[in-house]
Design a protein around this nucleic acid. Structure first.
Lengths: 98, 98
DNA sequence: CCAAGTGCTTCGGAAATCGAAGCACAGGGA
DNA sequence: TCCCTGTGCTTCGATTTCCGAAGCACTTGG
């Protein structure tokens, strides 16, 4: 349940998702997340670091921990579902347009 | 991405998760979600109904649609991960306590 | 020395969330 | 018939969270 609460906070899911491509810097990560507010990004990052999902490397770049990669793996089905969901929605739209 | 945004809204993940056990009424659902605010629950439910993940039956009870069940299936790996995450954290705690 | 890029902080306003109260309605007794 | 209880749902003021622009300290390269 705590997990659903953690990921139910805005941006947390997205951040983990964007970190899949390896270490990335603060500002670059911010860009990837639709230029989310830097203040919130900082907050979310410390939360994720506390949760041991993300670690900050000595060159102050961020990456998923082993645990974090587990999340990402667990998230992939959701990603796949999102794709077919997008199809369903666009199909429904063209349905409505008729 | 839109999916990560939808589920990045508070309670949406939790609601879908709690709806797995079949149809349930408004107040009962609210109880299951740590007595979340009824105003927000209403808002979330209309959002989820709009997204075609949840449907409201004639007796005004709520349940997952076919699409919604897809989400839940896609969410199960995350549930399994959450379990082992809890173990890791409690293990780390007793580690710290030493 | 300067310009540009970085990680990160501060802060005022906007938006989301909460929570308690209450409305309208539907049974189910007495 | 009149309560009493439980339901789905709404309203609204207070609190929390989020946003976004500005800027600070620091590093790198010219």
């Amino acid at each position: 349940m705590a997990a659903l609460d953690l990921f139910g906070r805005r941006w947390n899911l997205r951040i983990v998702w964007e970190l899949q491509h390896g270490p990335i810097g603060f500002r670059a990560l911010q860009e990837r997340c639709d230029n989310m507010s830097s203040s919130v990004l900082r907050q979310r990052l410390t939360e994720l670091v506390d949760a041991a999902l993300v670690e900050q490397h000595p060159d102050s770049t961020y990456a998923l921990t082993e645990l974090g990669h587990g999340v990402h793996r667990a998230l992939r089905p959701l990603g796949r579902w999102a794709a077919e969901w997008a199809e369903t929605l666009s199909a429904a739209d063209s349905e409505d347009a008729r």
